[in-house]
Simulated assay, not measured.
Amino acid sequence: MSKQYHSFEEIDERLKVLNLQRLIAQESIKLQFNSAKTDLVPQQLRQGLGATFSQKGTIKSLVITFLSGKLLDFIKSKRKSRNRDRS
């Protein structure tokens, strides 16, 4: 159901509100993206997967370290290719 407006002032006010909501949503996405990047730091990724640093010599810790490094390299390569495509 669409709203009916009775003046241009009402339309302008609604457009301002929608623009502010859009800006808030953009900032929220940026914040979530930066939070996700922080969560992908290898140390935090290892902790999240259950590897403890008291077991530095375990195979589990080594495998998780290796896989997290590969994952970060993959993400970086995708970003670089995406940035080259934009240029």
Rank of each mutant, 00 (worst) to 15 (best):
R14N: 05
D73E: 12
N34K: 07
G48N: 13
T65C: 05
K78V: 11
K3C: 10
F53H: 07
E9G: 01
F53M: 09
R86W: 08
L40Y: 04
V17N: 03
V17H: 07
G69V: 10
P42A: 03
K80Y: 11
L45A: 13
F66S: 09
F74T: 15
G57H: 00
K70Q: 14
G48P: 01
L45V: 14
K30H: 08
I59D: 12
I11P: 02
I29V: 15
K37R: 13
V41Q: 09
N34W: 01
G69L: 12
Q47C: 10
V41D: 12
L71Q: 05
T58I: 02
Q26I: 15
D73S: 15
G48Q: 08
N19R: 10
E13W: 01
I59W: 07
K60C: 10
L45S: 11
D85L: 08
G69K: 09
R14L: 04
S87D: 11
I11Q: 00
S7M: 00
Q43F: 08
G57W: 06
F66T: 14
S28W: 03
T52S: 11
S35G: 07
N19W: 07
D12S: 13
N83T: 12
S35N: 14
S81R: 05
L72Y: 00
T38R: 15
R86V: 12
I11W: 01
L31M: 05
Q32I: 02
L20Q: 05
L71N: 06
N34R: 03
F74N: 10
R22D: 05
D73R: 11
I29L: 07
Q4H: 13
Q4D: 08
L67Y: 01
T58V: 08
G69T: 09
S54H: 10
D85S: 12
E27K: 14
G50E: 11
Q44H: 11
S68L: 01
S87Q: 08
L15C: 06
